[in-house]
Design a protein around this nucleic acid. Structure first.
Length: 361
DNA sequence: AAGACGGGGGC
DNA sequence: GCCCCAGTCTT
């Protein structure tokens, strides 16, 4: 390995112009026909890049199409109701992306005459726009030679240049940005950056990379040394903690269901859910009392209808779902309310509670 | 620098 | 079950 070499020195040995040409030529030939590639509207590029954070292309495509259908322009999104934006994001995860995006879009509408900024400083000041997204917008929408280093780019370049820095470390991204800054061509930074990412997605994959089909195989030090399977270096994360809940699927005498809005900050912020009791606070025996204390309502005939295990990136929910009926009392919780089966459809629910919702029909 | 923040899919 | 994915924000 090249532990003691600086990335910069490695790049000096590297045929940058031929690499650029081979990569761009390949990208222009085989690139996928993706909805956000139909035009270079900076707003659409922006939306796509936010959705694509930590999310696969195949997952994003239907969300992107629906989202642009609903909010065709930056001003449409700026004027939208936040709950409507969250509903459009429902199931995509990392919901702060949606909130930050709309926040930033409002900023652009108000301060930049609804035109997405084309400078590094202005973009970086927007909520939810970090080093990657900033570079992606500048290069893809404005064709400016800025690095856009994501997981794909780190994987590809770690192999091409045999870089063994730990890509799980936050500082490592800068090493790859320095690499890309040196290699990115002034003439076509858009196709170059997209080519790096497309290559990472289609050829230079995490496991079993298709090196025999690779357009830059000739430039790849990992391939020439048979190291492609060992790069990039990435240390492992920690295991998730498990948290147990009881969830309540409750109907009142009018056939309406009790739901509540989650806090405005933290996990699944502002989304809606069926009431849940942490089993750290109560147990199945005392669930009725716990519920009455928190919501001011008495319930009857609780029956366990399901057990749900839902895995997040940093924790696991284990939910025992109980169905029952409200028999008396007045609702005391500010963020809870009763809604009809039909009205339920318009509220954004996390996937874990969409599983609970299935027990209604 | 490390943890919070979703969900789906590959093997 | 573990790993990965077109990352960013907070602490």
């Amino acid at each position: 390995m090249v532990k003691d070499q600086r990335a910069k020195n490695i790049i000096c040995d590297f045929d940058q112009e031929q690499f650029q040409h081979d990569l761009i030529d390949w990208f222009q030939t085989v690139q996928r026909d993706l909805p956000w590639r139909k035009d270079k509207d900076p707003y659409k590029v922006w939306v796509s890049e936010i959705m694509l954070q930590q999310t696969k292309v195949d997952t994003v495509i239907p969300y992107f199409n629906r989202f642009i259908d609903k909010f065709p322009t930056l001003d449409d999104l700026a004027a939208a109701d936040e709950q409507e934006v969250l509903k459009a994001w429902e199931g995509l995860g990392y919901y702060s992306r949606a909130r930050n995006l709309q926040n930033a879009v409002k900023e652009v509408a108000a301060e930049y005459n609804s035109k997405v900024p084309d400078t590094s400083e202005e973009l970086a000041s927007l909520k939810g726009v970090g080093p990657y997204t900033k570079g992606a917008i500048l290069s893809i929408a404005y064709n400016l030679p800025e690095p856009a280093v994501d997981g794909n780019v780190m994987r590809v370049m770690s192999r091409v240049l045999l870089i063994d820095d730990d890509i799980a470390k936050s500082k490592t991204r800068r090493i790859f940005e320095d690499c890309v800054k040196e290699v990115i061509p002034e003439t076509n930074p858009s196709d170059f950056n997209q080519g790096l990412m497309e290559l990472g997605a289609l050829v230079c994959t995490p496991t079993k990379p298709s090196c025999l089909l690779c357009p830059v195989q000739n430039h790849c030090r990992a391939f020439s040394e048979g190291m492609q399977q060992d790069l990039p270096i990435k240390t492992k994360g920690k295991k998730q903690k498990s948290v147990k809940y009881m969830a309540f699927l409750l109907v009142d005498t009018d056939g309406n269901y009790l739901i509540e809005q989650r806090p405005d900050k933290g996990l699944l912020a502002s989304l809606w859910q069926f009431p849940m009791a942490p089993l750290a606070e109560t147990d199945e025996e005392h669930a009725g009392n716990w519920f009455t204390q928190v919501y001011g309502l008495k319930i009857d005939s609780l029956v366990k209808v399901d057990t749900i295990k839902h895995v997040f990136s940093h924790l696991i929910w284990e939910i025992d779902v109980f169905a029952g009926a409200i028999v008396s009392g007045g609702l005391t919780s500010e963020r809870a309310k009763f809604v009809s089966r039909k009205e339920l459809e318009s509220y954004p629910f996390p996937v874990s509670h969409q599983k609970i919702l299935k027990h209604i029909d």
